[in-house]
Design a binder for these strands. Structure first.
Lengths: 340, 340
DNA sequence: GATTTGAACGGAAACGTTTTCGTAAACCGT
DNA sequence: ACGGTTTACGAAAACGTTTCCGTTCAAATC
């Protein structure tokens, strides 16, 4: 009933427990025959090494802390899945915490994870104030930010090229003949959304399009924001032929508001989202959108973190991954009446 | 640079490290004045206790292992979020692993978590073979199953009342005047789906409705299954007025197939899903469905596990939580032509 | 054949806590 | 003032590993 330890195995095998440790760790300081014998005994006794004790002496837990704003956000859960799978493949387990978009809580769980002696932390920040909050306590533990562009801050991060992303969207719509392209954005205080807006604006400039932005003062869920922005827009004058939304959920909310106002997509209005969450591909939605390469982001983040763990003194590195356009059914060429 | 330990604090405070430990643990064996003094010193030195070392001696990690088939499944991610939040509230952290619906991998991560000395494991099983696979290795660690009904197996689990759930759906449709109610199911090998089917069938019997079931031989994603079942059904004769799907994603897939066949919902066909994933409430979908009480399930699972941790010898307990009907816009009364 | 070398293994320290036990001083009642 | 109880604290063991340092013994070297 009491768990089997190295000592128990050593006693049965008639060797010191140093030898058992060597037999299992793949050390060269041991005879091939005794290694085989000890391994067999371990099998028979059902011995599993205690990683806590190992961590104690090795000063490494092989655990990565992951802090996300909300696990059940579709984008974040996809990211989380990819991170977990890749990390495990690299020999690390994941300790996951929700910050619930609360920077106070975020700081709290950050300390908690530090106390847990995780080797490093990947964080999808709750807001753009996260950095300032975390700064004083993140000095002595490898940390990489994910999904949020930290600009010139002296930190490691991996993010998608948000500016290029919305640029792609504008270019695509322009190539379909659209010139009146509205943008739905949300404040959110995040640099990510700032960059997406800038990408939209500069692409418009480049292509001779007059930017037209509708910002949200609301702070609630992105879905609701899209719905309310849509309500507001569709109730007044509207002559745009296309709409770019700062996120897929924003787009889906806007679509609903459009439905209720008698607007059809893409017949009356073309729409493109951002993120490419899995639900956007669902038939009833079928949203043309800008993809964030979630798997690559996950792997880059883990790799970045691992390299910081092995060499904490290395200079910070940033990885900005390219966004790509996913064409589905929510946009139509302006000159043609019915697509497909 | 080397982390601050109890000893360092003790040296500064001029006391033994036992005293420091007592000062922080809220022990009564210490003077109020020295406690204050030591706590202040800890603050100043930025001391954070090493939970690894604590776990070592306490033989408790305050970590719960969570194994889910796929974190990015909407239902599971909602469950995961709720589990994490509630567990942390109870002083536990979560170590999360994906089984990717692979019972082999599931067993592997189960052992891995055991080696990590987690205090207990919550598992959302990959298939109905999970139990047999896990049985030999789960004897010495508290485990509770979630979301999957383990029937009379000698294990602790919490699940929704699947039978009652589909029963509710049938009753609701019946109350709207429907009598030709089709059921879309998927094999999946899971007891959950078996129970949902049974609930449908027995409610039909009770209400004098002839059950009509379409099963899927496909094994892929639920969304695709729904789509293919729909394709198959709508291409032939179809005279049903309502459709119950074994899951929301199944329903959404079916809806798409319906669209493509020129069917409108709910005008031509009423449809009810199961699970109440958050996306079902999205306007373009707006699916009437059967809710699984995810938060309650999460909390029950944690509570069950915690009680098993404190008393591993206690007999197993099962919790079957009631399902409830969420009425949205995907069903209409049969006698009326246009709802709303 | 004596010395060196190297392999194979044992002994023991170390990791940072918690907790038991011991002990000195302070306190109490009589 | 004295024995006894309580209070506050120190010393040290324990948790299960890894690893450094010795030690032994056989093989290799001269």
């Amino acid at each position: 009933m009491p768990n089997i330890t190295l000592k128990d195995v050593a006693k049965v095998a008639g060797v010191s427990y140093a030898t058992v440790s060597r037999a299992l760790s793949g050390s060269s300081e041991i005879g091939e025959d005794t290694r085989k014998r000890i391994q067999k005994i371990c099998e028979e006794m059902g011995y599993t090494p205690n990683s806590i004790a190992r961590s104690m002496v090795m000063k490494r837990t092989n655990i990565i802390g992951l802090i996300v704003a909300s696990i059940d956000n579709p984008f974040m859960s996809e990211l989380t899945t990819n991170i977990e799978i890749y990390a495990r493949q690299k020999g690390y387990n994941l300790m996951v915490c929700n910050s619930s978009y609360d920077t106070g809580l975020e700081k709290e769980v950050f300390s908690l994870l530090k106390g847990r002696q995780v080797d490093g932390i990947i964080i999808l920040p709750a807001s753009n104030e996260s950095y300032d909050m975390l700064k004083p306590i993140m000095s002595d533990i490898p940390t990489v930010f994910i999904s949020e562009n930290m600009q010139d801050l002296p930190e490691s991060y991996v993010a998608v090229d948000n500016r290029q992303g919305t640029g792609l969207a504008v270019e695509y719509l322009h190539s379909l003949g659209h010139s009146k392209i509205l943008y739905f954005g949300c404040r959110h205080g995040s640099i990510t959304h700032q960059l997406r807006l800038e990408g939209y604006q500069s692409a418009c400039m480049r292509l001779g399009i007059t930017p037209n932005v509708l910002y949200s003062p609301y702070q609630r869920s992105s879905l609701e924001v899209g719905y309310r922005l849509g309500k507001e827009y569709f109730s007044g004058q509207h002559e745009d032929t296309a709409l770019i939304c700062a996120s897929d959920t924003l787009a889906i909310g806007a679509v609903q508001a459009g439905y209720e106002a008698g607007i059809s997509f893409p017949e009356d209005l073309s729409i493109v989202g951002f993120d490419n969450i899995s639900f956007s591909s669902l038939p009833p939605i079928n949203l043309t959108t800008i993809d964030q390469p979630k798997q690559k982001m996950a792997e880059s983040a883990v790799n970045l973190l691992l390299s910081r763990i092995t060499d904490p003194e290395a200079s910070h590195s940033r990885e900005i991954l390219p966004a790509s356009l996913i064409v589905r059914g929510s946009c139509r060429p302006l000159s043609v009446q019915n697509p497909n």
